[in-house]
């Protein structure tokens, strides 16, 4: 695309405007994304407390991290929340998409209703569900006042199930997105496949199970990655709904990082914890990226 002229300007100045336009990107990529990440990883091996300092202590921070009950609870919560979120949002999202794909009336209305929670922030989501799940006024109270006086449903105040209370809100907020992605996937399938299956006399549910779902593998994997990326970052929802309580029973890693960096004045711990989060993401993303892009070459 670049013209060959007799006196060619120096290489650096060729396409100069494009390079100027890309300066923010280059700075961002190098300084923040690459530099920032490396900086945090490096400082996770130091004993930085109130201020970052380069006094290396090896793996000390990590050793302490993995014996801190608060972190262990956070990791366990994330594992439960993550597994449930993946399974349920995929299943519910797919079922909703399949229902909407039946050439129904008011499809747009239903889609709008299922997706609107996704437009709301996690803070709003968390606060609404905190109110609905409030044992003194919410669902538990209403059911009790109907006559079932022994009815107990207060997930946000029961440390053994509090993470499921958060899951309820997260599913309400996030399944619409999964549904939308799935619906796009379903719509992308060749109409002739459906016709062929009908001529073959294959029942609808079998067509979905044995033909359509296997065909949607790329969409499913992309959706999975998107959900997974969201799971690791979960933070605002917990802050709004329970503030990590009761006690520390609904702590999550992102919150742990924030607390240690900005409140406990123990930067090293925060850096180590955030590096662990990065590691988790790498474990999820790398195999996917390999499957998605690696094989094409």
């Amino acid at each position: 695309m670049t013209e060959q002229t007799a006196r060619r300007p120096s290489r650096l100045f060729r396409n100069l405007n494009a390079k100027i336009a890309s300066i923010p990107m280059i700075l961002n990529a190098l300084v923040i994304f690459l530099g920032g990440t490396i900086w945090t990883i490096v400082y996770s091996f130091t004993d930085s407390r109130l201020l970052p300092r380069l006094n290396f202590v090896g793996l000390d921070q990590y050793r302490r991290l993995w014996v801190t009950p608060r972190w262990l609870v956070a990791v366990e919560n994330l594992a439960i929340y993550g597994a449930c979120m993946l399974v349920f949002s995929l299943i519910i999202g797919f079922l909703l998409a399949a229902l909407l794909d039946q050439k129904i009336r008011f499809e747009d209305t239903f889609r709008t209703i299922f997706l609107y929670p996704f437009a709301l922030s996690f803070i709003v989501t968390g606060l609404v569900w905190q109110w609905i799940l409030n044992p003194n006024f919410g669902v538990q109270h209403v059911v009790r006042s109907l006559g079932w006086t022994d009815f107990a449903f207060d997930p946000l105040y029961d440390s053994s199930i509090v993470i499921y209370g958060i899951l309820i809100a997260a599913l309400w907020q996030g399944t619409g997105l999964v549904m939308c992605l799935m619906l796009a996937g379903l719509r992308g399938i060749d109409e002739d496949i459906w016709k062929a299956a009908r001529v073959d006399g294959i029942p609808t549910w079998k067509t979905y199970l044995f033909i359509i779902i296997p065909m949607m593998r790329p969409v499913l994997i992309t959706t999975l990655v998107i959900i997974a990326a969201g799971i690791v970052k979960v933070y605002d929802l917990v802050v709004a709904q329970t503030s990590g309580g009761p006690g520390i029973s609904s702590e999550v890693p992102a919150k742990y990082v924030y607390e240690y960096m900005f409140h406990a004045q123990n930067l090293g711990q925060g850096f180590a914890a955030s590096t662990m989060m990065l590691l988790t993401v790498i474990i999820v993303i790398v195999p996917w990226a390999y499957l998605e892009f690696g094989r094409r070459k």
């Binding site: 280059i26 990529a29 923040i32 945090t40 960096m261 925060g270 993303i285």
Partner: peptide, 20 residues
């Protein structure tokens, strides 16, 4: 640079907040 940028989108924010 673009690849770094896109990969960066998957990095948890927590890793970058303090440097910022």
């Amino acid at each position: 640079f673009f690849t770094i940028l896109i990969v960066g989108a998957f990095i948890p924010y927590q890793v970058m907040i303090y440097p910022i």
